[in-house]
Design a protein around this nucleic acid. Structure first.
Lengths: 212, 212
DNA sequence: TTACCACTACCTAAATATAGGTATTTTAAT
DNA sequence: ATTAAAATACCTATATTTAGGTAGTGGTAA
């Protein structure tokens, strides 16, 4: 028995899904919600195998909802419900923790099949989304998607890079053939721009935000 | 017209593919090879849209072949040919630069469809492989595979974790309800174990080696 | 029970980083 | 050609980190 919870704001679609799921052997629709907040309150109690989740929700959007559900139930399998498959949001949803997605206009039999696939450890998705995921995956660690809001100058990036490589101020100065005082000056500006106050914080930010 | 090149050591399968592709309107099989080396010599001249590539090849294996082809023609779309879809190698192939894969026993019509999908920017693959790709993608940067050779104690990991979160010694001490002196003592031991001599180095190592 | 390890803590001393002000030169853009 | 931004550099002062020695306590394994 695959236990499902649905979050979908359109009453017709939501009820349709509930009837489809509950009316099929081997599937059970534990509960349905029209928005995220009440779902988040009950999700632990409901404890479904699969969470079907619309992206375009009023109030908290689906992406945020996915992240929060994952905090409560890290092992849950989330499938995104979407109208158009070529949606950038679908990709964001996968980043946020979804395992696949369903097109709303999918015929019921295929829909149930996709839920079963997901519950067996699969990730139903179109080949176009799969390609985007793969590309992002192949570039992993390069953070090409995240725009650098930190506008460090070329020199500042070099200097920060030196720190990430394990050098102290003197070593950075020597490697760039400048005075330690200059390095210190640059770090003052780097710290201001990154809103940090120590080497450690700067290094963490540099690595996690992909600045270097 | 979709131009295809095939690399497959089994004569029967290779010829079958050639006949199928050449015998279908809109598809053209530029050339076929039974191993990688000769394909690599000619791939630039052949310049296909799609490269169908077996993984289990004699001599240079498919993964290596994919990497080398990508160096020569970075924009080429590579589809992996495999017998069993639940193969770890398929996943490696995707990492190496393949965009999708085909099961050898797939019926001809589906096979041609998959090639067209790939040539249109899609990534044909089973939902099980898609899941693995997604999971790896979601974990990017976490280096869960790399085993910790650094034998920090539980407390030392906590303390190092505090540093990675941007705290200084005093803040770490306060959050763990211990003296700053104790924190300093732990850091001395942590630095010794990690063979580093500063916060920055420790943070870099902690993040890159996945210690925290 | 002895020996070892992890964790706690204090001491001293030296090295390094943080924070501020200021000024000159170089580079890039209007 | 003028301006603005970036890079260079020195100053003072304070805060923090690094490095060493030493020692008591609690738990655990030989």
């Amino acid at each position: 028995m695959i236990k499902v919870v649905v979050v979908e704001d359109d009453n017709e679609i939501r009820e349709g899904l509930r009837i489809l799921i509950d009316g099929t052997d081997g599937y059970s629709c534990i509960n349905t919600y029209s928005e995220c907040t009440s779902m988040l309150k009950n999700i632990e109690k409901n404890n479904p195998d699969i969470l079907l989740m619309d992206i375009g929700l009023p109030g908290m959007n689906g992406i945020e909802g996915i992240k929060k559900v994952k905090v409560i139930l890290p092992e849950i399998t989330i499938l995104v419900l979407t109208i158009y498959e070529e949606n950038e949001l679908v990709f964001d949803a996968l980043c946020a923790g979804a395992s696949g997605y369903l097109i709303k206009k999918t015929p019921p039999s295929k829909l149930l099949e996709a839920i079963k696939e997901a519950s067996n450890g699969g990730s139903p998705m179109s080949s176009h989304i799969a390609r985007k995921v793969i590309e992002s995956f192949q570039k992993k660690g390069k953070n090409l998607d995240k725009k650098n809001e930190y506008v460090l100058t070329k020199r500042e990036k070099e200097i920060l890079g030196g720190l990430v490589e394990g050098n102290n101020f003197k070593a950075i100065a020597d490697s760039l053939f400048i005075s330690v005082e200059t390095v210190r000056f640059h770090f003052r500006n780097i710290y201001k721009k990154l809103h940090v106050h120590s080497q450690s914080e700067a290094v963490v930010k540099a690595i996690k935000e992909g600045i270097v």
